[in-house]
Each structure stands twice: as C-alpha cells, then as structure tokens.
C-alpha cells in the first residue's frame, strides 16, 4: 500500500451522553467527516480503561480517539475528571516508550457540538494519515 491511498483505521470511544450524541448530531445535520473512525459507545469516558486503548493499537488501529463530556458536565458528575488523569498518564508513557502520542487523542465534545466533532475527527484523521500505518504495537496476522 502506498502512502498516498493509506486510509487509517481509527477507533473512537465516545461517551453515551455527550460525544456519541454529538456524533449523532453531526450525522443528522449531514456534516461531512471522514469514515475512518469506528465508533464504540461507552457509558462514560471514565469507563475507558487504558487497556482498551492499548488493545486497540495491538489489534491494528492506527489511531485512538477518546471523547467525553466537557469537564463539569459529566452525566456521572466526575467520570471525565478520572478519565483525564488516567489517559494523560497513558499518553505520557506512550511518548516515553517512543510510540507516537499523536496517535492517541482525547477530546471534550458536548451533545450540541456536532460541528466540533466533525472537525476533530477530520483533523485527527489527517494527523494519523501523515504518521502512516501503526506497526509498533500491532500484533502479527490478525
């Protein structure tokens, strides 16, 4: 596969209450965004275990996006604050081991920010496309 037509696989963990609804709004409003993202709905961004992100990379994902409610807006009051600590630390250790931290992104998208969601996915897809396929953590034939 040449770099020109490389289409990255991106896994998106979106929280049920804000980001998933935001993505829904983007769809309903017919806002265009790349189809590279495969969305997995979780009840809260605090549910996203760093293992999920690493497992996604291991299964061959080129990028992982975790999106939740804005700080203070969490449906479960504090889930996204916990997510922020956990995933920032994960980002640190990815950088430390030489795995591009640009492949992993967190974002806050509220239910009314369909446009912002589309922008984030577009920018992130471009970013991952430039990095090329993720081979460092990807396992053998899967």
């Amino acid at each position: 596969m040449t770099d020109d037509n490389f289409e990255p696989k991106i896994i998106g963990f979106l929280c049920n209450w804000c980001s998933y609804t935001g993505a829904d709004l983007a769809g309903v409003s017919r806002i265009q965004y790349p189809s590279n993202i495969r969305i997995i709905k979780v009840m809260c961004s605090g549910r996203v275990n760093p293992q999920f992100v690493l497992k996604a990379f291991q299964e061959g994902a080129d990028g992982v996006l975790v999106s939740g409610c804005h700080p203070g807006d969490c449906h479960y009051i504090e889930g996204n604050y916990h997510a922020r600590r956990k995933l920032t630390m994960l980002s640190d250790i990815l950088e430390f081991t030489g795995i591009e931290p640009e492949r992993f992104q967190m974002s806050w998208v509220s239910a009314s920010e369909g446009k912002k969601f589309a922008e984030i996915v577009t920018a992130f897809t471009e970013q991952v496309k430039e990095l090329g396929p993720q081979k460092k953590l990807a396992g053998g034939e899967k």
Partner: peptide, 25 residues
C-alpha cells in the same frame, strides 16, 4: 484473554505498559 500467550514485542509491550499503568500513582 487480554493478552496472547505468544511472546513477541506486541504482546510484551502490552503487558509492560498495562503493568506500569496499573501501578501508576
């Protein structure tokens, strides 16, 4: 299983990163 029995860079890296994350803080 979260991790294969296979010993390779992918699985080993997964093990060591998750282990480190479980001990973070």
């Amino acid at each position: 299983t979260w991790i294969d029995k296979t010993v390779d860079v992918s699985n080993n890296m997964f093990y060591h990163l998750v282990r480190a994350m479980h001990l973070a803080g």
